[in-house]
Amino acid sequence: MSDAPLDPHLTLQAALDGELDAAGQAAFERQLAADPALAATYARHLALRRALQAQFPRTSAPAALHARLQAAVSPTIAEPAHAPRRDFMKMAAALALGIGLGGSATYLALQRGTPGLDDALIANHRRALLAGSPVDIASNDRHNVRPWFDARIAISPPTPDLAAQGFPLLGGRVDVVNGAPAPVLVYRIGAHVVSVTALPGTVASRPTVADAGFHILSWRHAGFTFLMTTDAEEQELVRFAETFKAAVTGAPAP
């Protein structure tokens, strides 16, 4: 825009909107200093900008719209092509793990459970990883995270402090699962992140899912079903799950 001098009022728009390069901005500032009428116009534009921002704070799309669109792309019926695969080696491995864990409410088997739910959990986790920050509220203090959930969706799941055991709390976010908002606790596992989705009530008995590098492990306790989704190694997830359970139930950490 340096070929022909621009109308000062158009330059003013560009300055206001941060669209001038450094040289253009400097030139405009010289103009402002030399021209009181232009300076007054610029002040009016700044005042308008401030008034618009003060009177119309940023709003979100309605939760119902969000949920409807999520539902529109969450397959609820398993496609025949993806019928449960039965791989007995994997089953045996999972069974051994299950015995190792010993928790009566822990179901382990490397077979696909509820495809719609698994896909939704993995998609939510992936999107959170892609979004720059995996949390809506970043806090390592569980006393911040629980009230935040309570205020937003009136559900506040147990939020244990696992920092001492090597799993610092990163914060929380709200995902839409099965068409309803659900609280998600986010912890760090080494270089990875685990999303703990707490669904009120019990979800049908679920095996551990391994899908394209993601693992989901479920645990039922105190009226919640905790679905732990991560891109970390399965052993790491199991170790996290044991620590999480011990902290929530008050049992000594493993």
């Binding site: 669109l69 792309v73 397959p75 998609a123 999107r127």
Partner: peptide
């Protein structure tokens, strides 16, 4: 596949839902 379409939709469209709503309003 439906799966790919759903994933693309979640990654391409859903993050901008709030903005789209503000604009449409």
């Amino acid at each position: 596949t439906d799966e790919t379409r759903s994933r693309l939709f979640r990654e391409v469209v859903m993050p901008h839902l709030d903005d789209a709503f503000v604009f449409a309003r």
